[in-house]
Amino acid sequence: MSSNRVSAPILAALIFLCTAGAVVSASLGKYEDPRPVDGIAAWQQVYSVLVSPRCINCHTASNYPEQGDNRARHFANVVRGPAGTGVAGFRCVTCHQKENADSTGVPGGKNWHLAPLSMKWQDTNDQPLSSAEVCRAITDRARNGGLNGAALLKHHTEEPLVLWAWSPGRGVDGAMRTLPPLNHDEFVAATKQWVDAGMPCPK
């Protein structure tokens, strides 16, 4: 059975069963509770969205945002700045408006900015962090802006910059930007499933 014939969530669940199952069963005794397994599967779905370019491009570990599906370093030497909004005279809002500018190809949204470094989902070589690392970051209230499960769910449901990922507008070439691998309803549902499962993280 080759991995490309198995959907990512199922594969992740299998891996989890293989590697972490012993720990889970030990801690839960003899109960055959399916929740942690489903929770991890749900997380993998959430993770697949978080590391898609529309989301991860602004969750860098570096001094700059990325852009495009190839996640290239943002052109023109755009930098993070102390608050993730760029620097004096050269802000995110120097180009990015409160909504997409489709006629000129600039994406936009309210409060366009980089996620803080505590919410980096990449390493300093611009490679996505593992599912487990992102999960730990996103569930650590010291790093995630103090959000509990319910607040995280709300964030994924309502935050304008999160929602932007599903209406990212047109690029300079006039083509629609690509979307995350799940639609927003699926993403919210997966988040809810994961939160309801106690926000388990892969090891």
Partner: peptide, 8 residues
Amino acid sequence: QIEESMGG
């Protein structure tokens, strides 16, 4: 700061 702000 000059390099960053004038960097674009």
